[in-house]
Nucleic acid binder design. Structure first.
Lengths: 200, 200
DNA sequence: CGTCTATTTGAATGTACTCAAAAGCGGTGG
DNA sequence: CCACCGCTTTTGAGTACATTCAAATAGACG
């Protein structure tokens, strides 16, 4: 159980891994962040909200999803400790969000306010580089997912998901995995039965 | 018909639109880029290549695609004048590419070498900010595509594609559009007939 | 004009969805 | 501590959307 500055340290450590900061840069960052606690099922972002923070997950598990015109949920992103989660569309374009970002477990988020971060981008190049690289990696990961969606059938996608998210799978209900894979929960259940032998 | 420095100017103008450069920054950029001409069907990147450039399309039309284990082509990205095209996976991770980037028309590309660009990121913050914002937008666009793929059926995707790429559609063959939408060319042909009335 | 590539057509097939209902499971209050 | 309630998962039948394969037609380019 961490206190507030423990969670901030968690963020700083995370940045350090790839982009060493000097102590004034650390302080600079520590001064502008805020820590937000979420209870299970609580929302970090809801449709209509403006996303004005970069959100770092210190503890817990969240997902980003939206509801289409037929009322179907589609999970866009899953995140656990040391991941970033956001509605970048709303954040970048300054428009109301159309999606939900929800805690699937009690969680603690470290939030960097957008206006402060944009000031830092200009004053402290290391932060611009850090987030440029983060977003590049996210883009590549999303492109990999696009490739998988186009070239694999449902069971292959599910097996690949299990491999990639081994540590997350047990933490979330099956119907959310289905909504991430783009299939119905009924069909995922059917596939699990049919391929029970492959599921260790 | 532009000469070499005309194409470079095209890139500089493009950066200027969102991130004004002073003249030393312009010169800095001009010095490191190179201009590459491609004939129709020629490849900018092939499987096995290492992608060591950021590629700006000055003129022409390209696509990025890969071939899955069943021999199916999947188009990941389309690009025309003033767009960027690359295999970012290979570029970022320094691994051989698994995809093709091919000219669909004669084209001229302005290439920024990776090592020079990374030097600039540290020395001239404006470039890091420019590419951070570019990649953020690309991420958001790809996420929108992911949402569409999950929540729309084939005809809706096709109609949305026509709206979004009105100016590109006539420049590329139909089977490539099908491979972008994730459907077979036969089925796209069928849909076009069935919905002829909606296709103006 | 001929050749090569792209598009159309159609029949048979398969993968995944819908809808409805039953079974399982976990948390909560009596 | 057990019983109940609500939510998640399973099951199954019927259906729809999209694919495969093969062949015919249309278009583009030298």
């Amino acid at each position: 159980m961490l206190n507030k500055s423990g969670h901030i340290k968690c963020l700083i450590d995370h940045i350090h891994e790839t982009h060493p900061l000097n102590s004034s840069e650390e302080i600079e960052m520590s001064k502008i962040v805020r820590v937000k606690e979420l209870r299970k099922k609580e929302f970090l972002i809801k449709p209509g909200d403006y996303s004005n923070y970069m959100n770092f997950i210190s503890t817990g598990c969240l997902r980003a999803f939206y509801i289409d015109k037929n009322g179907q949920e589609h999970t866009l992103q899953l995140g656990i400790e040391n991941w970033w989660v956001n509605d970048l569309f709303s954040y970048i374009k300054n428009v109301p969000s159309k999606m939900y970002v929800q805690a699937m477990e009690d969680a603690v988020i470290v939030q960097i306010p957008k206006n402060e971060l944009e000031r830092l981008y200009k004053e402290v190049p290391v932060f611009s580089n850090f987030f440029r690289e983060k977003i590049q990696s996210a883009y590549v990961a999303l492109q990999e997912r696009t490739i998988e969606n186009m070239s694999r059938d449902a069971i292959e996608k599910y097996l690949a998901f299990r491999k990639q998210y081994r540590n997350i799978e047990q933490r979330i209900p099956q119907y959310i995995i289905a909504s991430y894979l783009g299939i119905t929960p009924e069909f995922l259940s059917f596939l699990r039965k049919k391929h029970a032998k492959d599921l260790s």
